[in-house]
Design a protein around this nucleic acid. Structure first.
Lengths: 236, 236
DNA sequence: CGGCAGTTTGAGGTACGTCAAGAATAGTGG
DNA sequence: CCACTATTCTTGACGTACCTCAAACTGCCG
């Protein structure tokens, strides 16, 4: 039975507490936050929510990797975002009170913290600075989207794939001698959905990257030098 | 000399007052809002702000059409948004307290209302529901960006240009007999920057659309049937 | 051993980028 | 009103990259 007056913040022990959207929750509201708080483990491939689902709250990735994807009528899909620990997802449907427009699915074994919709609304109403932090997350998403739109318009698909591999390596890579190695958390199809090409083209892009020699590719295992000075390769 | 207690809302006479982000301003804060409020006319091609400029406030388009564009190092540029009356622009740099990442420039003779940065901050702090409305505008921008990313990945450039022309016609078109006619507010280069192709390709896309026969093109003058059932043409 | 999903490879068609030149348009000044 | 210029737009030619359909291959699991 928790003591309401001294109740600890549910995110207090989280690595990302300093930047948590829930950090500004005042002590008197911590009990509401705690009431709506729950944690959930997701195995690889398991969904957190589906497209068109009603919003159940605000989700925060605590561990692993979540893919946000929209499925199209013709069966294809587009990968819109990779959500890492510390990232908030589901905030659009929460703030606009509408169904999800993307599905969220674990690419790696993941852990997600949820603040149930009703309680999240109460806490946000009682503390505007949470809304300010949510707005900041919105703006980060806008920035990411703009970067992606610009990259799609100005950069070759091969270069964009290289950029993605470098970014993934920074997060997932582990040093092996003077190299970095990672197990790709994404299938070729997922990468194709991320770049916006067909799976066959993605396969051919890997062929071209492999023959360039800077990046070693063997199935989902990727290796490269620790500090690859390969941002040069032009827009081909 | 305005009577502070009964001061009228500066947006009160605006057509978009019902959805204005400043509508929730309480009567006691109207004086602050009014203090920071100014209106400005922009001739065609004139800038509202430049890329890298410090934020001067929150801007609301009152009349005309504003293009938000990012210029790249190599001299090219990408058109990220067309802002119409009622739209808020410059909110990212305002909320995040950072320089603009886009430039804003009038495509048509325009009028823009500004709430100066310092006063806007005060008013927002005093009324969280304004922040909620700003967040809602952020989400609209995210939705637009997602639609664009999806369209770029799944739709042919010819179809995307057709979609843009239809959307522009809804706003700018005027009936002439059983047809709609408009003067394109965008140059071929601007449209190329919007779709993400080269100007030469944009010219060829127009050639192909013209030969399809559903849309008549003559320079910047576009005509089509009032209710064109031409959403059919596939992804060719 | 036999499926099965994910991936790769091949062949042919289409569309886009690039460089280049030419045509149309708008703006300017006489 | 015309001539002139600058800009914008169009067209051509050629190489590259992507899409589509198809088939073969891989690893994995039953």
């Amino acid at each position: 039975m928790p003591n309401l007056s001294t109740q600890t913040h549910p995110c207090g022990a989280c690595d990302f507490y300093a930047d948590s959207v829930w950090k500004p929750v005042a002590s008197c509201s911590v009990s509401i936050l705690s009431r709506g708080f729950s944690r959930k483990n997701l195995g690889i491939g398991h969904p957190l929510y589906h497209q068109e689902d009603e919003n159940r709250g605000v989700f925060c990735v605590s561990k692993g990797l979540i893919a946000l994807r929209t499925n199209h009528h013709n069966g294809s899909s587009t990968l819109l975002r990779l959500a890492y620990p510390g990232d908030i997802i589901g905030f659009r449907s929460f703030l606009e009170n509408r169904p999800h427009r993307t599905e969220a699915r674990a690419l790696l074994a993941s852990r997600v913290c949820t603040v149930a919709r009703r309680d999240a609304q109460k806490v946000v109403q009682g503390n505007p600075s949470i809304l300010a932090r949510l707005a900041s997350r919105c703006i980060s998403e806008i920035d990411r989207n703009h970067d992606r739109i610009i990259a799609a318009a100005t950069t070759s698909n091969k270069q964009r794939l290289t950029d993605i591999l470098l970014r993934l390596m920074k997060v997932h890579g582990e040093p092996v001698g003077e190299r970095l190695r990672m197990q790709l958390p994404l299938s070729r199809s997922d990468l194709a959905d991320l770049i916006g090409v067909q799976p066959e083209t993605m396969s051919r892009l890997f062929t071209r990257i492999r023959t360039d020699g800077d990046i070693q590719v063997s199935g989902r295992e990727i290796q490269m030098l620790v500090d690859p000075s390969l941002r040069r390769s032009g827009h081909g």
